[in-house]
C-alpha cells in the first residue's frame, strides 16, 4: 500500500478511536439513560415517574462503558503511535465496547427484582424475527473470511467475536423477561415495549455495522494483496453479508422492504 494512504488510514482511525472512546467515556451515564428513547414532548409527569422507577429497577452502572471507552482510547493511541495497526486497533476497540454491552444486558436479564407480570403473551418475533436472528448470526460470522489472510487473521477473529457478543445481547434483550414494578402497569408496559424494541433493533444495527467497517478497512488492502476475494465461499459470504446489510438499511429507511416495524411514537402515558 502507498505509504501516504497507510499514514492517512492510521491517522484517521487512530483519531477516530480516541475521539469515539472519549465520547463513550464522558457520555457513559447518558448511554444508560432510558429517557433518550422518549422524546421530550412525550414525557408527561407520569412517564417521567415511571421512567425513574424503571431506571431504579435496572440500576445500570456506567462503569463498564467507561472501561470500554478508556480501552478504545488506548487502542486509538496505540494506533497513532504505530504500536498496532489500524485494523487491529479497530478490532480491539470493537471488543472493548461489545463486552460492556454484553455484560450490561446479561446482568439485566438475570435481575433478581422481578415481581410483576402482565397476563398477556409476549411475542418476541414481533420485534425481530428468528429468520433475522439467524441472518444476523451469519452476518456476524462474515469477518471470518479474512482468516485466510495471515495479516488479518487476528483482527478478523476479534471482530467476529465482538459481533457475536452483540448478537448474543440482541437475543437476550429480545427474549428478556419484563421488568415491572407494578405501580403503574399500563405505563410501565409501554416503556417495556419501547425499550425492548429500540434496544433490540439498535443492537442489531450495531452488530451489522461492526463487520461493515472492518470490511471497509480490509477491502482495499485485500485487493492489493491479491485478495481472498477469488475464493467462491469468501465471495458468497461477502455478498450474503452485504445483502443482509442492504435489506436491513432499506427496511430502516422504509424503502419498500419490511424486516421490522418500529411502532409509531405517540402518547405513552
Amino acid at each position: 500500500m502507498d505509504s501516504w494512504l497507510a499514514d492517512a488510514m492510521r491517522l484517521f482511525y487512530g483519531a477516530f478511536l480516541v475521539g469515539f472512546g472519549a465520547v463513550v467515556l464522558v457520555g457513559a451515564a447518558r448511554l444508560n439513560d432510558i429517557r433518550r428513547f422518549f422524546r421530550r414532548g412525550e414525557r408527561t409527569p407520569e412517564l417521567e415517574a415511571a421512567l425513574a422507577r424503571r431506571a431504579d429497577l435496572e440500576s445500570l452502572s456506567p462503569l463498564p462503558w467507561r472501561v470500554g471507552g478508556a480501552v478504545a482510547m488506548l487502542c486509538g493511541a496505540l494506533v497513532l503511535t504505530r504500536v498496532i495497526g489500524p485494523i487491529v486497533g479497530y478490532a480491539l476497540a470493537c471488543a472493548s465496547l461489545a463486552l460492556p454491552l454484553g455484560w450490561t444486558f446479561a446482568r439485566l436479564r438475570n435481575h433478581g427484582l422481578r415481581r410483576a407480570a402482565v397476563l398477556a403473551p409476549r411475542r418476541p418475533d414481533a420485534v425481530l424475527s428468528r429468520v433475522w436472528l439467524v441472518l444476523g448470526a451469519l452476518a456476524g460470522l462474515a469477518p471470518l473470511i479474512t482468516l485466510r489472510i495471515p495479516a488479518y487473521r487476528l483482527s478478523g477473529a476479534i471482530v467476529t467475536f465482538a459481533a457475536l457478543v452483540i448478537w448474543a445481547a440482541v437475543v437476550v434483550v429480545r427474549d428478556m423477561p419484563a421488568l415491572l414494578s407494578g405501580e403503574d402497569p399500563e405505563c410501565e408496559m409501554q416503556i417495556e415495549s419501547r425499550l425492548r424494541e429500540r434496544r433490540t433493533l439498535g443492537l442489531f444495527g450495531v452488530m451489522l455495522g461492526i463487520p461493515f467497517a472492518f470490511f471497509s478497512l480490509v477491502g482495499p488492502l485485500t485487493a492489493r494483496l491479491g485478495g481472498a476475494g477469488s475464493h467462491p465461499f469468501t465471495l458468497l459470504m461477502l455478498v450474503a453479508y452485504l445483502y443482509v446489510v442492504a435489506v436491513w438499511c432499506a427496511s430502516f429507511m422504509k424503502l419498500g422492504v419490511r424486516v421490522f416495524r418500529v411502532k409509531a411514537r405517540g402518547p405513552v402515558c
Binding site: G112, L113, R114, R115, A116, A117, V118, L119, A120, P121, R122, M176, P177, A178, L180
Partner: peptide, 12 residues
C-alpha cells in the same frame, strides 16, 4: 395467557 416460561421469568 402468557407461556409458563414467560410468566415465570417476569415474576422471578
Amino acid at each position: 395467557l402468557p407461556t409458563v416460561r414467560q410468566l415465570a421469568g417476569d415474576l422471578g
